[in-house]
Design a protein around this nucleic acid. Sequence first.
DNA 1: GCCTATAGTGTACACTTGACACTTAGTAAG
DNA 2: CTTACTAAGTGTCAAGTGTACACTATAGGC
Lengths: 222, 222
Amino acid sequence: MPYSYEYPHPAVTTDIAVFSLHQQQLQLLLIRRGQPPYKGKWALPGGFLEIDEDLESGAKRELKEETGASDLYIEQLFTFGRPDRDPRERIISVTYFALAPAEKLSISAGSDATEAAWFPADELPELAFDHAEIILLAKERLAAKTLYSTIAFQLMPETFTLSELQSVYEILRSETLDKRNFRKWILSLNLLEETGEMRRNGNHRPAKIYRALFPDRVDMIR
Amino acid sequence: MPYSYEYPHPAVTTDIAVFSLHQQQLQLLLIRRGQPPYKGKWALPGGFLEIDEDLESGAKRELKEETGASDLYIEQLFTFGRPDRDPRERIISVTYFALAPAEKLSISAGSDATEAAWFPADELPELAFDHAEIILLAKERLAAKTLYSTIAFQLMPETFTLSELQSVYEILRSETLDKRNFRKWILSLNLLEETGEMRRNGNHRPAKIYRALFPDRVDMIR
DNA sequence: GCCTATAGTGTACACTTGACACTTAGTAAG
DNA sequence: CTTACTAAGTGTCAAGTGTACACTATAGGC
């Protein structure tokens, strides 16, 4: 026990809620815990912050170690710190919210022999710690930001058709949208450009392929 | 040094940005530091989290100890954790954002002989640590929430006139508003009720006094 | 060449937002 | 008591925005 302090210190962890779209459903990435407490239960990827590491770097490192995912859009969500939220010691968890395009779904099991898997966001298994609460907040944040920002672009591959983009909005907002109104609106934002390519995708008229002008940016709109 | 851990632990603090309206200006509450580091500099009220205390409780306790302020609207803002943000040791700061009606402005110097004072939010002195960055974020949050929530009510006393409320919106949004349009809009929200009282306040027609129907609630609007 | 499936396109109506000026009710001064 | 002053209170119209809605275009498969 070489690390000593005059006053008690809590431990600090980061936990990340990663969402993606897969099989026309919003999916959340979870890992199965290999150690107690809550051994065998599913939990958010995350872990202890290193002492000289920035919070966001820690979140990204844990995510990569446990799931292989990297280069995702990530933002801070909330900090959870109920004194009894972990049975081992006092733990403050700085939580993050991340989005992955379907193409980056190639998730590998982590080094500590944990199992990682995607679950439909509305059919989650029993969760460790207060992670159900964290996920609820993350889902609310995603739903809210869908309405007034371009965050949905973070779920898209590099190029896509307008129909594919509309489908993503429909899933996130759980409602069908009018095709003409959606196109009028999304094009009026001037955030897309045509690549000049077409997608031939079955026995019907091919679709123009678009690209986000600023793929790394999330703009506030409306 | 009685508190030992197998791995190094950061310290956790809470810091609070409290805003109020005073002399027709948005004001921020600061304390002058009595101890190094940054001795003599102004800083946000805040301090170390106790080991068995919830984050929000810690923020409220520090605020009360250092400034006497209590019973304010408070929400979590962001968690700051750059490894070098405090020269003493690694410190994670969970920051909060609070609003006080002018009537609760009676601020007393804290127990540890610190000095507390209100500063106009756009004329702040030199600040300790990364507190300038925290305050910038808090001001952005307040400006944004003014547009799509009823957070401005948290700056109002229990009863007020529509002209007083309009004046608060004008200060927060840094623009003048049309009197008829403002009244039409704010009354259409159905969040105010007339008290039946009138305010006689100079040599002119007296104003109806209103009260918020749900003074503790912040609703999303628009 | 005919069938089918998705891509792509314009207009009309309802509603919301924003601009704008005068009357009312009190106080104070002569 | 009359007048002057100040802030409170009130409605309409025009422009812009959002929403509903149906047909044509182009490819593949047979």
